[in-house]
Design a protein around this nucleic acid. Sequence first.
DNA 1: TAGATTGTTAATCGATTAACAATC
DNA 2: TAGATTGTTAATCGATTAACAATC
Lengths: 210, 210
Amino acid sequence: MNEKMISVAVIRRLPKYHRYLSELMDEGVDRISSSNLSKIIGFSASQIRQDLNNFGGFGQQGYGYNVKALHTEIANILGLNRHYKTVIVGAGNIGKALAKYSSFKRFNFDLMGIFDNDSKKIGNVINGVEVMEDDLLSDYIKKHNIDIAFLCTNKTSAQKTADILCDSGIKGIWNFTPVDLDLKEGVVAENIHLIENLFTLTYFLNQESK
Amino acid sequence: MNEKMISVAVIRRLPKYHRYLSELMDEGVDRISSSNLSKIIGFSASQIRQDLNNFGGFGQQGYGYNVKALHTEIANILGLNRHYKTVIVGAGNIGKALAKYSSFKRFNFDLMGIFDNDSKKIGNVINGVEVMEDDLLSDYIKKHNIDIAFLCTNKTSAQKTADILCDSGIKGIWNFTPVDLDLKEGVVAENIHLIENLFTLTYFLNQESK
DNA sequence: TAGATTGTTAATCGATTAACAATC
DNA sequence: TAGATTGTTAATCGATTAACAATC
């Protein structure tokens, strides 16, 4: 599957490189050294060079890194050189917000459908996409070869919805529920645990006032 | 400020302990060993004991941990034994979703106001809270002693809004913008970088199919 | 008391930083 | 060529795991 396992810590820094390189491109900067990138991104120059060298020698001695080329390389590593078909499961507050969030489309995440178990919501159109009933979810994923589901159900339905998603051949789940999902081998997930993040904030907030 | 610095890695695990202990309480379990907790939470038993011992000896040899007592201890460590006055800045999709999200109230996060710079939104009432104009933000924070701002503006306004928040005496910022904020000494922030998290998901998704 | 399980020290593992030879 | 900066190895630092004496 892979030559040399790259640590999760490295992977989680990649999107930040991607973002800062985008900004540099917008500013018309066309090359940057690890030392200057360090100043704006906040990672050490050494770490930057180590991180990038996990994937290849993208730089050039005496010159630094070409911003545009490096941006493209990182986009490719992250898998941003393709489209992803997505569905949203759960048309509550968060589900609706995600449906309307425009950045996803810009990065080639194509929202194909929204699903909910509340009959009052079925047929509603959010950002041009119709809310369909839950029962159709499994067939829809199979038929349209959906890659990623944004899981926005309530806590109670989270695991059983995840089971349906896995059985239907989903590739990844972006999990907004406060549940640690148990998934089928080969299905990946990333979690946005809002409440956990907020509690971390209160911890540090109270430390400051000591 | 503190006796012994506790690592961020430990702190970020605390909310998860809190959540699993809540669940155990709901199930009527009143004691648990590090080894059994390990099985359900997924951290090693050794790590659990190490983590908890950063804050005190909450367990008892030969017995384990009292679920309710440990839950309370962790809640206190996280600062959940008090109320927090919050405001939402930016009444877009995410701001609105957070305004309607019920869990915050349950954990004593009291939403006091919502602010936006779009005159069309001023006066709207979301979940019982009125949308006020941006210009009033600074005075409002000072007057009501707001603890935490949920920052949901667009990218462009993020840093300058953060500056206003800092100058007005905010204690913490929960940042939903795709920007790394530069904050005044003593102000803490936690970031929900949606796009970065999603890009991590696509990375792992593509690794799986190799 | 005997058994169970913590608290805590020591060992290991992994990630970050430092250093510098290679080279553009 | 001289200067700059990478790629990469070695050193350090920190976090996790293992082990076991203490003790309930």
